[in-house]
Design a protein around this nucleic acid. Structure first.
Length: 184
DNA sequence: GGGCCCGCAGGG
DNA sequence: CCCTGCGGGCCC
């Protein structure tokens, strides 16, 4: 593959771990009805959690949806917020009520991806605050590199884990969100 | 439309 | 095994 130089050569077992990288038969732009459908195709196997991966090998995939107001989606790049510290994790949302930390296994996994440089599958869910989110369902938007991970401050004043993601070059353009409610 | 509460995959 | 999580359906 053309992006081979982006991978850490010591982590070549990407070739034997089917959880990383493109999923056979799932094209960039594929739309899924719900999270269960994403899981069924192996695009993102967790029913609710936004980050799928391991602490040792890094993240396989992440879901960008509403629920974390500190995300900033610019399409080819975006800022993602880690998991944890929310008021009601079951209802999937609410303000931060405590600090996030990279000790959380999911946050640690995504941080690990900065080191490994292994691209992560990105799935966008409905989010009226994102210019690039699908109006409905969950869309596979291709592979992104996690360029950076650092602690930041949420709008609620708590410490949060944040990540800079950048899309691999030469992927199909991202569709615009018809329901976007932002100004730009 | 909002509040509520259900299951389940999988990593550690 | 155990616990958690950027859903989702249902009821009002």
């Amino acid at each position: 593959m053309a992006n081979a130089d982006l991978f850490d050569p010591t982590l070549i077992k990407r070739e034997i771990d089917p959880r990383f990288g493109e999923i056979k038969g799932v094209k960039v732009g594929t739309l899924f009805d719900n999270r269960k459908a994403c899981a069924a195709k192996g695009v993102h196997s967790k029913p609710m959690a936004g980050i799928s991966g391991t602490v040792k090998e890094g993240a396989f995939s992440i879901v960008l949806a509403s629920g974390y107001k500190d995300d900033k989606d610019e399409g080819e790049t975006f800022i993602y917020t880690g998991t944890g510290g929310q008021e009601d994790s079951f209802s999937g949302g609410g303000p931060q009520v405590e600090d996030q930390t990279f000790d959380h296994p999911d946050n640690a996994a995504l941080k690990k991806s900065v080191e490994t440089k292994r691209p992560v599958r990105v799935i966008r869910g409905p989010n009226r605050d994102s210019k690039y989110a699908p109006a409905k369902g969950y869309r596979y938007d291709g592979l992104y590199i996690v360029e950076d991970a650092y602690m930041g401050k949420s709008k609620d004043g708590y410490q949060i884990c944040q990540y800079h993601l950048r899309r691999l070059p030469d992927l199909p353009p991202l569709p615009l969100n018809p329901d976007y409610r932002g100004s730009d």
